[in-house]
Amino acid sequence: MRRRVPWGVLAVLFVVVPIVEIYLLIQVGQVIGAWWTVALLIADGFLGSWLVKHEGGRAWTALQEALREHRMPARELADGTLILIGGTLLLTPGFLSDVVGLFAILPLTRPLARRALTRVITRRLVVSTWAGPMGPGGPGGSGRSTAGTDPRTRQRPGPDESVVQGEVVNE
């Protein structure tokens, strides 16, 4: 079962955000002038590309180090994702997208963005797991959690756990 994006979110992304970007460009242009606004956007693009190159290189080095140490590179992959998203937003003309892009790229604010990204991904995984084949709407969709009942995912007891032999009797 695929989870669909609400129409309100799409409306905000494709209608409201561009209107706010245009409004901000007009306001800045009225304060500092049209040519200075264009120059500011170009300089902002160069700054964004430099930041992406610099922070992306650091994230790549951290990812390689994590793989060399044979540990799961979750933080490094999240940083790389945020730098990619932030870089895309910085290269997009507009001041609102630049602020969000800087928030995702700068080392001081990236941990906050990483926490937000982790929350979103965790929520999606929990929803996906719950609405999976044995969750609500699936076979036997009782709304109860069926974790551990699938023999393919059941784990053997560890050395500290006891196994009680028994027989199941259906009445």
Rank of each mutant, 00 (worst) to 15 (best):
T153Q: 05
G137V: 12
L40S: 05
E69R: 09
G138H: 05
I121H: 11
L41W: 02
L77Q: 03
M134F: 11
I121C: 13
L84Y: 13
R156A: 10
P136W: 13
T88S: 10
G148V: 06
A147T: 13
S142D: 14
E21M: 09
R68D: 08
T37W: 04
L47V: 15
T146C: 06
R68I: 02
T153V: 07
E21Q: 10
E21W: 09
H70F: 01
Y23S: 12
V163E: 08
E21I: 07
P157W: 09
G87H: 02
G141Y: 06
T118L: 05
R114E: 15
D79A: 15
F14L: 08
T122F: 13
F14C: 04
T149Q: 12
G33T: 02
I105E: 01
H54D: 10
L25D: 04
A147Q: 02
G135L: 04
R58P: 00
S97Q: 03
T118H: 11
F103C: 06
V120K: 03
V31G: 00
Q30E: 11
P136Y: 13
R4P: 11
P18L: 07
I19K: 05
P18K: 02
L47R: 00
S142P: 12
Q30Y: 07
R115K: 14
G57N: 05
A43Y: 01
H70L: 05
V16L: 15
G101S: 05
V15R: 08
G140W: 08
G137M: 10
R4W: 11
D150Q: 03
S162T: 12
V52R: 00
P93G: 01
